[in-house]
């Protein structure tokens, strides 16, 4: 968690306007507020989590990214963050498009389904993978559209989305992803972090 927050924070310029989509209990928002910018908003679907955020004085709106991002004007945020939630949407493509409209830049982090530990579970155990990062069983997972680092990388190039920076995380080891090491990073990282622009 901490590493991911640090990486995201490093991608953001100081005193910019940020929207955290699926902000949960506001941990990342708090982190960024202390380290980068005071001008940060959140969007969260769970009432309980929204109340937790508001209790901390964070500016959060209860809502659904698939329907409620529309209300923000085009390019109204310098950065829009989607941290480990893309896979939970009914229509991830639509969400990415909405994010790219609302934000000048978008930071997407994805739990990598191509990580070797995940692959091995399916290969050897023959069951849907359950890992530290993906703790749910197949029947109760909120994750509808799991993807790999490579999937997301390819998605961006097919849809003509510019990738400014792509970072792989394994435990606390940080490395850059590029065309030539993509297959390896896709196998050896548990999280991918992408800074993109339409």
């Amino acid at each position: 968690m901490k590493e991911e927050f640090n990486i995201i924070s490093n991608l953001i310029k100081e005193n910019t306007r940020v929207l955290d989509v699926g902000c949960g209990n506001g941990d990342l928002m708090k982190f960024l507020q202390e380290n980068k910018t005071k001008d940060i908003r959140g969007l969260e679907i769970s009432k309980e989590k929204v109340q937790n955020c508001l209790s901390k004085g964070l500016t959060v709106i209860e809502g659904n990214a698939e329907s409620d991002l529309k209300q923000f004007p085009k390019s109204s945020f310098d950065y829009v963050i989607l941290s480990q939630t893309l896979q939970a949407f009914l229509n991830p493509e639509l969400v990415i498009n909405e994010l790219l409209k609302v934000g000048k830049k978008v930071i997407v982090t994805i739990p990598n389904f191509g990580y070797w530990r995940v692959r091995l579970q399916l290969l050897f155990k023959g069951t849907m993978p359950v890992t530290e990062n993906l703790p749910h069983e197949w029947y109760n997972t909120p994750n509808l559209h799991m993807c790999t680092i490579k999937d997301f990388y390819n998605f961006c190039s097919t849809k003509n989305i510019k990738i400014f920076k792509s970072i792989a995380l394994k435990k606390s080891r940080i490395s850059e992803i590029n065309e030539s090491n993509l297959n390896y990073k896709n196998l050896d990282s548990h999280l991918g972090i992408f800074l993109i622009e339409s």
Binding site: R17, R41, K47, V50, Q51, C53, L54, L58, T59, V60, I61, E62, G63, Q71, F72, P73, S76
Partner: peptide, 18 residues
């Protein structure tokens, strides 16, 4: 009200209480 405020980038929080 929230939508109107968001559309001008105002600082607005919102929750629907159960």
């Amino acid at each position: 009200i929230v939508i109107a405020l968001n559309s001008i980038g105002a600082d607005v929080g919102f929750v629907e209480i159960e």
